[in-house]
Amino acid sequence: MTLTLTVPPGAKVRVRITNENGETTEIEVEPGETVTITLPAGSTVRVEVEVVDPDGRKRTETFTLKP
């Protein structure tokens, strides 16, 4: 399973991925970048995406991906 994120110009994104064992991976994606994350097959993962807009506003979306 893959997750692809494209960050709009001016925004910053931090992604936290937590697996079933509670292990967390965190990455930051710079403005204008596209990143593809390969998620472990057969695992349920929690993905938290934090977006910081150019004006400093933050918003966070959290979702769970199941196999």
Rank of each mutant, 00 (worst) to 15 (best):
V47Q: 00
T4R: 04
E20M: 06
I17Y: 14
P40M: 13
E20N: 06
E33R: 07
K58H: 02
L3Y: 06
P67N: 14
N21Q: 09
E61K: 07
R46Q: 06
R16G: 05
E26G: 06
E20S: 05
T38Q: 07
V15C: 08
A11F: 02
E61C: 15
M1K: 02
E33W: 11
P9E: 09
T4S: 08
P31I: 14
T44H: 04
T36D: 08
G10C: 13
T44F: 11
V35T: 08
G32C: 10
E48A: 03
G42Y: 09
P40R: 08
L65C: 15
T36F: 13
V52Y: 02
G56H: 00
V13Q: 01
G42A: 13
K12P: 02
V45T: 07
T62C: 15
N19L: 08
I17M: 11
T25C: 13
P31K: 12
N19A: 10
G32N: 10
T18M: 09
P67I: 15
E28P: 11
P40L: 13
K12M: 06
R46Y: 11
T60K: 03
T2Y: 11
V15N: 00
T62V: 13
V51M: 05
L3T: 05
R16H: 04
K66H: 13
M1D: 05
E48F: 02
R14D: 11
T2K: 08
I27C: 09
V29G: 03
K66Y: 15
E50G: 00
R16S: 06
N21L: 05
P31F: 09
P31M: 10
T64Y: 15
T4P: 06
K58R: 06
R14C: 09
L5V: 11
I17C: 12
I27K: 07
E61L: 15
P8Q: 09
T34F: 13
E30C: 10
E50M: 02
E26Q: 07
F63H: 15
P8A: 12
G22M: 10
V45R: 03
G10P: 04
T62Q: 03
V7C: 08
V13E: 01
V35Q: 03
E20W: 07
R46S: 03
E61M: 15
P9N: 05
R14E: 14
T34L: 13
P8H: 14
E23T: 08
R16A: 08
T18C: 13
V47P: 00
L3D: 04
G32D: 12
K12G: 06
V51Y: 14
T2I: 12
I17T: 12
N21S: 09
I17V: 08
E30M: 05
L3G: 05
R46D: 03
T38D: 09
I17N: 12
P31Y: 05
R57Q: 05
P54H: 04
T34A: 11
I27A: 12
I27R: 11
L39P: 05
D53R: 01
R57E: 01
T25G: 04
K12V: 06
V29Q: 13
T38M: 07
R59G: 00
P67A: 13
P40W: 14
G22D: 10
T25F: 05
P40Y: 13
T25Q: 07
V45Q: 05
A11E: 01
P9G: 07
T64C: 15
P8G: 14
E28V: 03
N19K: 06
T60W: 12
A11I: 01
K12C: 13
V35G: 03
R57Y: 02
S43A: 13
I37K: 13
P67Q: 06
R14M: 09
E33C: 12
L65F: 15
T25L: 13
P40F: 14
R14A: 13
E48S: 04
G10W: 01
I27P: 14
E20V: 04
I17P: 03
I27L: 09
T64L: 13
E26V: 04
I27G: 12
R59K: 02
T6A: 12
P9W: 07
V15R: 01
V35H: 14
V15I: 05
K58W: 01
F63K: 15
T4H: 10
T18V: 14
P8N: 11
A41H: 09
I37H: 12
T24E: 06
E20T: 05
G56K: 00
G32P: 12
V51P: 00
F63Y: 04
V35M: 06
E48P: 00
T6V: 10
V49M: 03
G32Y: 13
V7H: 06
K66P: 15
T36I: 14
P9H: 10
T62S: 11
G10M: 09
E61N: 02
E26S: 05
G10I: 03
G42K: 07
R14V: 11
E23R: 07
D53K: 00
V51T: 12
E50R: 01
A41G: 13
V13T: 11
T64N: 02
E23C: 11
L39R: 05
T4K: 06
F63R: 15
T6F: 14
K12N: 09
G32I: 14
T18H: 07
N21D: 10
R59I: 04
E26H: 05
F63C: 15
V15Q: 03
P9F: 09
R46L: 12
T44Y: 08
T2G: 06
F63T: 15
T24F: 10
T60E: 00
A11C: 04
E48I: 04
A11K: 01
P8R: 10
I37R: 15
R59W: 15
L65V: 13
P8K: 10
G10R: 07
G42M: 11
I27Q: 11
T62D: 15
D53Y: 15
G10K: 09
E30S: 06
V29P: 13
D53F: 15
T4M: 14
I17E: 12
P54Q: 08
E48Q: 03
T38K: 06
V47D: 00
T44G: 02
I37M: 06
M1V: 08
I27E: 09
E28C: 04
V47K: 00
T18L: 07
R14N: 11
T44L: 07
V29H: 09
M1S: 04
V47G: 07
P67F: 15
G56N: 00
E33K: 12
I17H: 11
T4A: 11
L5K: 01
N21C: 14
R59N: 01
T60G: 00
V15G: 06
A41L: 09
K12R: 06
T38G: 10
V51D: 01
N19Q: 11
G22H: 08
T60D: 00
S43D: 12
E61S: 06
G22F: 06
T2M: 10
P54F: 07
G42D: 11
T36N: 06
E23F: 10
E48Y: 02
T24R: 08
T2Q: 05
E30V: 13
L5M: 13
T4I: 12
T34S: 06
G32R: 12
E23L: 05
E20A: 05
L3E: 02
R46K: 08
A11S: 06
T25K: 10
P9I: 07
G32S: 13
G22Y: 10
T2P: 03
P31R: 10
S43F: 09
P67V: 15
T24L: 04
N21Y: 11
L65D: 11
V47N: 00
